[in-house]
């Protein structure tokens, strides 16, 4: 697992991907930060945090689009799958590699907190809490994107489907409010990434949210393992 994790990270930083992703993340989050804190004369980072969801929807598929699709295209999956490493180790290494790059991006919010401290007392409870929520949200999306990349040989298709799925998770909340049927609304609300994430942005360490996102991560890591097991068994 360590070997794969190390390779993933070095391949991100040896190619343009890490820098593009970080530039996008820092640029947009900085823009939101200026817009909702400086221009609005507010010391609360919550609006910045809730706006950043849209950017994450686009960034996470870019991070993990090549996880497995590129391996399949270059036939390097043969080296991975015939090595003594288990499928769990392989998938976990891939996931953690993508996740760590994302965590590096999220660290920027602590810098914003420090900037606020120059002007007003920063609410560190909100910043830390939301950052945890942000990492969980991104982790869940990355797990889904890694799964998608295991299904195709094309990075582009993996990225596009990943973005579409991300947008759907972003919109489930608003879709559910448009549907009049009660039980459908309930189901949609209970799987709405937005509503779980929103609780974090208010500064609550919402346990149901933590459990929800961790379950999504576990579920899609399991699905990814199954994709390879099925391929071997069919």
């Amino acid at each position: 697992m360590k070997a794969i994790l190390k390779r993933e990270l070095s391949s991100y930083f040896n190619s343009a991907i890490a820098y593009v992703v970080m530039a996008m993340f820092f640029g947009f989050s900085g823009w939101f930060f200026i817009g909702t804190c400086f221009m609005a004369n507010s010391s609360s980072l919550s609006p910045t945090f809730s706006n950043i969801f849209v950017i994450i929807v686009f960034i996470t598929p870019i991070i993990s689009m090549k996880s497995f699709s590129e391996e399949k295209r270059q036939r390097t999956d043969q080296a991975l799958l015939t090595s003594p490493s288990s499928l769990f180790e392989i998938v976990m290494g891939k996931f953690l590699g993508a996740f760590l790059l994302y965590v590096i991006c999220c660290m920027m919010f602590f810098v914003y907190g420090l900037v606020i401290m120059f002007f007003a007392p920063a609410n560190w409870a909100v910043i830390i809490c939301t950052n945890i929520g942000l990492m969980l949200l991104g982790g869940a999306l990355i797990a889904i994107d890694v799964f998608i990349s295991a299904l195709t040989e094309s990075q582009l298709i993996a990225a596009i489907i990943g973005m579409a799925v991300g947008l759907i998770t972003y919109m489930t909340g608003s879709i559910s409010s448009m549907i009049g049927i009660d039980w459908v609304t309930n189901v949609l609300n209970s799987i709405s990434f937005t509503s779980y994430y929103a609780n974090f942005t208010y500064g609550m360490l919402d346990l149901t949210g933590v459990v929800f996102f961790l379950s999504v991560i576990a579920l899609f890591i399991f699905f990814t393992i199954r994709v390879f097991e099925k391929k071997r068994w069919s």
């Binding site: 270059q74 999956d77 043969q78």
Partner: peptide
């Protein structure tokens, strides 16, 4: 206990 060289060598060409 097996060393395998597949038909297309599994090389990470960016390394």
């Amino acid at each position: 206990s097996i060393g395998y060289l597949p038909e297309i060598p599994p090389l990470y060409i960016d390394m």
